[in-house]
């Protein structure tokens, strides 16, 4: 311990600091599996593969709910009235401004495909309710229009769009978007 009395750093000081530094790195490395084990594992990720949905049986005005990656996906077969309401809305004044054309695939304006999770705190909005011909979230009162855009209530964003593509006029694949 006589080395501690000298003002100059000694080789022993260097060894102490180096040992502590390597020890800290080791402790941090040991922490990483403990943190990582809580993330989704490979089987969960694999189960999130794309799903195909046949649109043929969906009646005009009907909203169906399918699951992709444990998330509910709403598929809305919009009537001409719903489409017109969505297109005519003054979208620039909305909270999350988006024209209807940015929320559907060109040539498939009839079909709205959105993730059915309220962007506020994750509840599932109820279809055909609320004042905008779309959805109403029972948890905190957010209302979405027939384009899935937030119109009223605490939710900050429009209903999210999942990646999807049309395989044919009446068949979509959710989870994949080769055009994008």
């Amino acid at each position: 311990m006589t080395a501690a009395a000298t003002a100059e750093p000694t080789r022993r000081d260097f060894l102490y600091i180096a040992t502590a530094a390597v020890g800290s790195v080791g402790a941090a490395a040991a922490l990483s599996p403990l943190v990582s084990q809580m993330n989704p594992d490979a089987s969960t990720i694999a189960a999130g593969a794309p799903v195909d949905v046949d649109l043929g049986s969906i009646q005009p005005g009907q909203i169906i709910q399918v699951f992709w990656r444990s998330k509910p996906i709403f598929i809305f077969n919009r009537t001409p009235k719903d489409i017109k309401l969505a297109q005519d809305a003054d979208w620039q004044s909305l909270r999350d401004p988006q024209p209807d054309s940015a929320r559907v695939k060109q040539g498939h304006e009839q079909w709205l495909v959105v993730i059915g999770i309220c962007t506020h705190l994750g509840c599932i909005p109820l279809p055909h309710q609320g004042g905008f011909d779309g959805w109403f979230c029972p948890c905190h009162g957010s209302q979405y229009d027939s384009s899935g855009r937030i119109r009223q209530g605490p939710a900050p964003l429009n209903l999210q769009l999942p990646p999807y593509e049309f395989l044919s006029a009446s068949r979509i694949r959710i989870g994949e978007n080769s055009q994008a």
Binding site: V35, M38, N39, P40, T44, G48, K71
Partner: peptide
């Protein structure tokens, strides 16, 4: 949130932890 869930939504890993 994904880390807390252990999946794409609240599910079995969430209940277990």
């Amino acid at each position: 949130v994904t880390w807390l869930w252990g999946g794409y939504a609240v599910g079995n890993p969430t209940l277990n932890r």
